[in-house]
Simulated scan of single mutants.
Amino acid sequence: MAMDSCKILGYHIPKETQVLVNVWAIGRDPKTWENLSKFRPERFLELNTMDYKGHHFEFIPFGSGRRMCLAVPLASRLLSMALGSLLHCFDWSLANGVKPEDWI
């Protein structure tokens, strides 16, 4: 809810107006994401300045600012532990005898 009247991108927002954010549209904005219809998880491995800690609206499902997800610090710590446990406790191999050099 807008605490005071303000102008955003040329639109007048009256005081106490409830503003809804279209998260679906942000996640599919072609100005933000290249090839947004393709499944490319490696796009998040590229070095850039975006983070998920509430400062970049590309990751709005985690929230932003004071209202961001309370579990983000917990998830960021537990994710590395869970992945490390999986890598440590299982013997991983490629299916059907595929060699790593053939796969790349």
Rank of each mutant, 00 (worst) to 15 (best):
M1C: 06
A2N: 00
A2M: 07
D4Q: 12
S5K: 02
S5I: 00
C6A: 10
K7E: 09
K7A: 02
I8V: 12
L9G: 08
L9E: 14
L9W: 11
G10L: 03
Y11D: 01
Y11R: 09
I13F: 01
P14L: 00
K15I: 12
E16Q: 03
T17H: 00
Q18I: 06
Q18H: 05
V19C: 11
V19H: 00
V19G: 03
L20V: 11
N22W: 09
V23S: 06
W24A: 02
W24E: 07
W24M: 02
W24G: 08
A25P: 02
I26K: 06
I26Q: 07
I26H: 02
G27N: 03
R28Q: 12
R28E: 04
D29R: 06
P30I: 08
W33E: 11
W33V: 09
E34I: 05
E34S: 15
E34M: 11
E34F: 05
N35A: 04
L36S: 11
L36Q: 05
S37F: 04
S37W: 00
K38V: 10
F39C: 03
R40S: 08
P41W: 07
P41V: 12
E42D: 07
F44Q: 07
F44E: 07
L45Q: 08
L47D: 13
N48M: 00
N48T: 05
T49F: 04
M50N: 09
D51T: 15
D51N: 15
Y52S: 10
Y52L: 09
Y52A: 01
Y52R: 11
K53S: 05
K53N: 07
H55Y: 11
H55N: 13
H56V: 13
H56D: 15
F57H: 13
F57L: 15
E58C: 12
F59Y: 13
I60S: 11
P61S: 01
F62K: 00
S64Y: 09
S64Q: 06
R67P: 02
C69V: 10
C69N: 05
C69D: 02
C69Q: 02
C69R: 02
C69S: 07
L70W: 02
V72N: 03
V72P: 03
P73G: 12
A75L: 08
A75E: 11
A75F: 11
S76Y: 12
L78Y: 12
L78H: 07
L78Q: 09
L78P: 01
L79E: 14
S80Q: 13
M81I: 12
S85C: 10
S85V: 09
L86H: 14
L86A: 15
L87W: 11
L87M: 13
H88E: 14
F90V: 13
F90H: 14
F90W: 14
F90C: 14
F90G: 01
D91L: 12
S93Y: 14
S93M: 11
N96M: 05
N96V: 03
N96T: 05
N96A: 04
G97Y: 05
G97K: 12
V98R: 15
K99P: 10
K99V: 03
P100F: 05
E101P: 04
E101G: 01
D102H: 07
D102N: 09
I104W: 13
